[in-house]
Write a protein that binds this DNA or RNA. Structure first.
Lengths: 342, 342
DNA sequence: CTGAAAGCGCTTACAG
DNA sequence: CTGAAAGCGCTTACAG
């Protein structure tokens, strides 16, 4: 358990590559190779270096490597929320895709705020990331500029970009909103409300789909939309249900922009003795685990969250490596999951 | 929008501090000061440097700074899960506490695996973290050794350490398990089962508390415990309920080690027509949002998740800064939340 | 297969 | 208040 012999004032007092090299009786360069490209070093020296690494407890200094090699091995991931199960599933997919590649993942939680996104990106840019994974398609001008000037590969997740050359993985949020609304209409519902919260990009696009379907069917009525900027929670769903019930006479169905709201709305119906779906059909979006188990179980849109993260990370890796990219726009689709609630 | 004039082969082709200094007509050292300790630079030069930074779009290189200053400004956080709302709340608290301090947070998801924890820590150690936030008290020998040799300040979250000098923030998991069980006993329940999954450290300690209460009351029966190593999910709760019902005759209450299991168990009861709490009392742990809204609402233990993250981060900061630390062991307590289900 | 030299972009430690 | 020198720990680019 020997320590670095020199005690220079600025140093961390840690074992360096030179210490390892000295201990093994080789040049630092050889020690470096033995560690990073062992196939380029003779078995004998490789063994001596390995032994020195063990004995000294050498830990490579990532900052030094990044500086010398101009390669950070860092990938930045920006998501709007960590409390939303949707994004933790996306992160799981990203982790699984990146795990074998020895990248360091910098996770930033923008909290659905453009300002926060700018701040995080500005900070993370100091780490010279090799690639960036972003949620959504729309970003502030400053973010767009930072991305453009950095020339770092970027993949957008959760929706499909129509910009040529842009890389994106997800599905059409608008189309999914349309599909769910269409389903309710086909079931014979006439007064279909849209309950939305957070009002992020995706919620708005689902609303666009809802509107298109309602207009097509001649059922559109702006009074049927409740758009609330607060974060989506079960409690908010419960509250908004009350508001919709009192403000929208004749309501026979509600399309909630996500499952959290739908769960809250259904719990509220249970407490008020409103029968779902007989009196009121309620459906959600995302197919969270509880949706399959609640009573009534919840009709919703199944979304490829884990897969989105996984594919987006792989697309980014291909781009970083300069590999051929068959498709820069990967549509993972969505599924209409019909259950008891609508 | 001028670029760095030199085009050396190894460089990133990015604007450096020297470029900024040249553009402002000062020495690099002065540019560095103007950016990091502006109060030490005259107003005139400070202004010229600021202008140069703007005009060149300078982004500091974090690796270079870390290497030169021997300070990483990195804090490592290891949590066992990101899909568990408990830990995302802890992370939110950490973020809020660290946000003003310009630290980079490295979030590692150990997936409840010691091997994964070792791997993550080994990787993150390469970044020379200034501090580490760990979940739980027990860690593998290799993890303990890495922490010991690095001499980096560590704060443990989610439970209280009895080791002298160790810093920890949380509450007694054992005590909480005891309290919930005691509550069920006081309510007159006799055959109280314990439904556990994941079987991590905390689940086991809650079980210890359950056992202590049952033994005290002369109600203990090992046949009343169902310990399943699979991850906790609503689906698993629903499944385990079935198993307990068929294997534990006379069961009149179930203490689920967390709310996910409790929700699944209650949904299953609804589907089977079992009345909760009349025929079977069910309670959970953690007080997730749905617990207050479900029907029946869920009796559970409220836990200080956000607060744990917040206080743990602040404790770590104090330790990093060498501030005086009034208490190295911060007990945030827990609350028994009695509702309809038990 | 091995190694001496130079440099990555910044900050420390001095000196003025 | 300002700056010239040296160095952080590693890797690139050569040369042998």
């Amino acid at each position: 358990m020997s320590k670095s012999p020199t005690t220079k004032s600025r140093a961390l007092g840690k074992v360096t590559l030179s210490d390892v090299a000295a201990h093994a009786g080789v040049a630092p360069m050889t020690a470096s190779r033995a560690i990073n490209q062992p196939e380029l070093v003779s078995a004998l020296l490789r063994e001596r270096v390995d032994k020195a690494v063990q004995e000294l407890g050498y830990v490579p200094n990532r900052a030094a490597r990044a500086l010398a090699s101009a390669q950070s091995k860092v990938i930045v991931v920006l998501v709007p929320s960590l409390s939303n199960a949707v994004f933790t599933a996306v992160l799981a997919g990203i982790q699984d895709a990146l795990d074998p590649c020895n990248y360091q993942i910098l996770i930033g939680n923008t909290r659905y705020s453009d300002a926060e996104e700018e701040k995080l990106l500005a900070t993370y840019m100091q780490s010279n990331p090799d690639g960036i994974l972003l949620s959504g398609l729309t970003h502030s001008p400053r973010v767009q500029q930072m991305l453009a000037t950095s020339r770092v590969p970027v993949v957008s997740m959760m929706d499909l970009s129509s910009e040529p050359g842009a890389m994106s993985v997800g599905f059409s949020q608008e189309e999914a909103g349309y599909t769910m609304t269409r389903y309710l209409i086909d079931k014979g519902r006439k007064r279909i409300g849209y309950m939305a919260a957070q009002l992020d990009e995706r919620t708005l696009k689902r609303g666009d789909g809802y509107r298109r379907a309602m207009e097509e069917a001649g059922l559109f009525d702006p009074a049927l939309e409740l758009m609330c900027p607060d974060p989506s929670t079960i409690a908010l769903g419960a509250e908004l249900l009350g508001r919709m019930l009192s403000n929208m006479p004749g309501l026979d169905a509600i399309f909630c922009c996500n499952d959290d709201l739908a769960h809250g709305a259904i719990f509220q119906c249970q407490r008020r003795g409103i029968k779902v779906p007989e009196q009121l059909a309620i459906c959600g979006f995302n197919d969270l685990p509880a949706s399959a188990w609640m009573k009534p179980s919840v009709t919703t849109i199944g979304t490829p969250r884990y897969q989105t993260g996984f594919e987006a990370a792989n697309l980014l890796l291909a781009s970083i490596r300069g590999n051929e990219i068959p498709a820069r726009r990967i549509d993972l689709g969505f599924t209409l999951v019909t259950r008891e609630s609508a």
